[in-house]
Design a protein around this nucleic acid. Sequence first.
DNA 1: CTTGACCCCTAGAACGTTTTAGGTTGCGTG
DNA 2: CACGCAACCTAAAACGTTCTAGGGGTCAAG
Lengths: 341, 341
Amino acid sequence: MTIEDAGTAPARRTTLADVARQAGVSTALVSLVMRGAPGASPANREKVFRVARELGYVPDSRARALRQGRSQLLGVMFHVQQPFHADVIEGVYEAAEAAGYDVVLSAVTDSRSEDKAIGTLLADRCEAVILVAPQSSREWLAEVGGRLPTVVLVRHVRHPDLSVVRAADMKGLGLAVDHLVGLGHRRIVHVDGAGSPSAEQRRRGYRAAMARHGLEPRIVRGGWAEINGSQAVEQLLSEDDLPTAILAFNDPCANGVLSTLHRSGISVPEEVSVIGFDDTHLAGFSHIGLTTVRQDAGQMARMAVGRAISLIERKDDPEVHRDGVVVPDLVVRGTTGPCRQ
Amino acid sequence: MTIEDAGTAPARRTTLADVARQAGVSTALVSLVMRGAPGASPANREKVFRVARELGYVPDSRARALRQGRSQLLGVMFHVQQPFHADVIEGVYEAAEAAGYDVVLSAVTDSRSEDKAIGTLLADRCEAVILVAPQSSREWLAEVGGRLPTVVLVRHVRHPDLSVVRAADMKGLGLAVDHLVGLGHRRIVHVDGAGSPSAEQRRRGYRAAMARHGLEPRIVRGGWAEINGSQAVEQLLSEDDLPTAILAFNDPCANGVLSTLHRSGISVPEEVSVIGFDDTHLAGFSHIGLTTVRQDAGQMARMAVGRAISLIERKDDPEVHRDGVVVPDLVVRGTTGPCRQ
DNA sequence: CTTGACCCCTAGAACGTTTTAGGTTGCGTG
DNA sequence: CACGCAACCTAAAACGTTCTAGGGGTCAAG
């Protein structure tokens, strides 16, 4: 009796041994029955099921994994405030389940770093991790890749230990610029993703497309969140240098752009056209339907899971070492229109 | 060599025993050092740390939990497409970490039911679960509550085995109605949450407030997602019975309302005022700032974690059995204005 | 009657930790 | 010199599973 045991341990849950005792059989037999493995008589099978149900027995996944030497677990690091990541997670659950793997999520928040998020996935003995839009350094990602099969989503990074799944960002921004030019726009600004994953590729795509049309590129610093879009527009307004079209880094950023334009009494798309990137559930629906470059979250999730499993099971799939590229397409909604200047 | 072993098990990770062998000490000592417990000489301490680092050793959280008889794990069930839930998760991580607990997330998606989400939390041997806006039956929730400490968030349900944390929904809708009435509105429609958790309470709050002002209530069936808000407005339009103000079940629903109003050329707030509920990160920012009833996700998360831990540690805290009620407030932004009819 | 094959079942080891119960030192003291 | 006491260390058990190896039956074939 020390001071420390003020906090009592929680009640013990019922175990395989409890069921075995109650049913008058060995634990091995109960294990068999619970897994649906062959080798038990119908009578015993029925009895074990009944007792298990009565006692509310649920197998301990940790003990199981420990014994089996493998967890059948796919770890997913994601950013909790990114709607696009939510779409990816939906797809990951579906694909993983189909392949017989479980999923463990580890969120990045304002107060929980990517390091910590990845650390818990390692401690949970995931067999592979899927990192959605990681912002960590290439070196740290490579170290993770060296430890266990790692698939990086929505970020350009080239390393033998990392399998990459991403959208064709250059192509995506090309589509967006083409669309705007087709509508007569010539002063097209890119509010970029600053240091976000794949921001560099999207800048490149923007510059290339502008060059193709003989137009002058102009990039304003943005970011992945709404606030960044807002601030970028505020800067443009303060410089009295508003373009006729804005190409945002992603949908949340585009939302910020729209928000500030609206507050400033500038009408969309009459005065300024706006395009996003992602086509998330959320953005697609909001007030003025956002014209955006769609990258298929479900398809990317399926590719990521497929690669993760290939790596785990060491199928020598050469595809895994090539970037998995998803082709984006443009979804035209209400935030783009003909240039009136 | 059978056909089945085409899929090889993944590479073995380095274990405590590996470190012990390499450092020439016992596993017990390595365990001591890794946990920072007293009883190791400085020399050995240093050596063990070095070897562990060299081998990239990460303790196996499952084996640890298994041995200790407790997981120190808080399970959280949430709906992946609900921005408000993301806000809650941020808070849960923070509060849990402060209290020395780890968090395991289990998402509900289109293809992953609440049953399944809760099932994995049970199998993971969480010591308590926090269910965010569960839609399951009262009976099933009670059964979960009977198995392990359970905190239900954002839903009204009365049961001795369930601890509830929620906003004062009645009060919240009262604030919203008062605000609208203050602006001169009299034809105020509530697009409700249909069968969603706490939808009933919000309906009640709406009816009570309307009655207080001597106004005729009108409720249109909605839901928790954007699509539901859109459809509700379509119905109102088709009946040619548009009110001057709409009170939506939550922010996503309000977004749907705004979306369809806009597509129909109806201006907000000039012709119709709109109010949401939640005040999520996302909704707060979008184009036209949404006037909404704010429920503090961080505060609710902290309360939930506090209650979960009280229950785990059997502190006989009578508070736990009372509903934890967070007082909402109204955040006035751009979607409400004076009634012009 | 023996043999072998099959079916059903169980004992016990193993997974990677933590913890318990001790076992060695070395050293200061009587 | 014997004793006691720290300080440091380790062997072995335990957690809840799964899996291996094998033990008894029963039955048909030799």
